[in-house]
Simulated scan of single mutants.
Amino acid sequence: MPTAHVNGIDLNYQLEGEGPETIVLINGLADALESWDFQVPALLDAGLRVLRFDNRGIGASDAPAGPYTSRLLADDAKALVDHLGLTDFHLMGVSMGGMIAQEYALAYGSDLRSVTLACTYAAPGPFCSRMFSMWGDLAPALGVPFVMRDVTLWAFTVPFFSDRPDEAKEFEEAMAGLEMPVDAYLSQLNAIQTHDTTDRLATLTVPTLVLAGEVDILIPTSLSHELHEQIPGSSWATVPGGHACIWEHPDPFNSTLIEFVRAHSH
């Protein structure tokens, strides 16, 4: 895959499709661009051109010393789309990617036709802050793969483990085999720990969909709904599943996203 030297680092990216409308996808914590494999075929079939990339700290992108912030990662995304000459596009971010997308929409809203914020929040609050503090303590002691094994239990629903054991095992093995240095993980973790757009969301004018898994317990659905309530005129939708709804139930997730994008296309 190609790389672009932007914002002082090399970012690994993949740009696919020939459609007249472009959607840019931003990954979550410790997720490389392959995390969108369950979305990209549907987006391409819908006639969209799709850009996805590895955030700094993951995959084949550079992992400079941190800590990182959601605004820094948004500036990386801005530098990449400028490098590629992309304008007037749709933006989708999930989890940490949704935090990055908020910062992007607030800083560079004129670039966007729409923004979708999935499984994310305006600020972590006391529950998520405690969880992330534990991850930060666990990673140096037991390694990032151990933490990701724990994340699997938070991200998927109980029926996924009982009804689809082969898929569950596949995801567990992928997360347990994650090759991400502890320093890079902690640098990305800082972005979700310090993210806070609460006092600025009222100024957001980009057409916005806030999307959540119905039973998300990692970033509770209620936090996503609070985000929706803080963005004037935003749309709200839920889909089956929890925090990993993009993988556990991709079809309803994809159709909800595509319907919103089409409503705000040329």
Results as ranks from 00 to 15, higher is better:
Y13A: 04
E16H: 09
G19A: 10
T22C: 14
I26D: 02
N27P: 04
G28I: 04
A32V: 07
L33P: 01
V40Y: 02
P41K: 12
N55K: 15
R56Y: 08
G57E: 11
I58R: 10
A63E: 05
S70M: 15
L72C: 06
D75W: 03
K78Y: 12
L80T: 08
V81L: 03
H83Q: 08
H83F: 13
L84H: 04
L86S: 12
D88A: 14
G93H: 04
V94I: 15
S110M: 00
D111K: 12
L112T: 09
L117R: 00
L117C: 03
A118T: 07
A118V: 06
A122T: 08
A122M: 13
P124Q: 07
R130L: 13
L138G: 01
D150G: 12
V151C: 11
W154M: 15
T157R: 02
P159V: 03
P159L: 07
S162K: 10
P165G: 03
D166N: 02
E167M: 13
A168V: 04
E172C: 05
A174S: 14
L178G: 01
E179V: 11
P181H: 05
D183M: 01
A184D: 05
Y185N: 01
I192E: 07
A212V: 05
V215Q: 06
V215C: 04
I219K: 03
H228Q: 15
G233F: 13
S235P: 00
A237G: 09
T238C: 13
P240T: 08
G241A: 05
I258Y: 05
F260G: 12
R262F: 00
H264E: 01
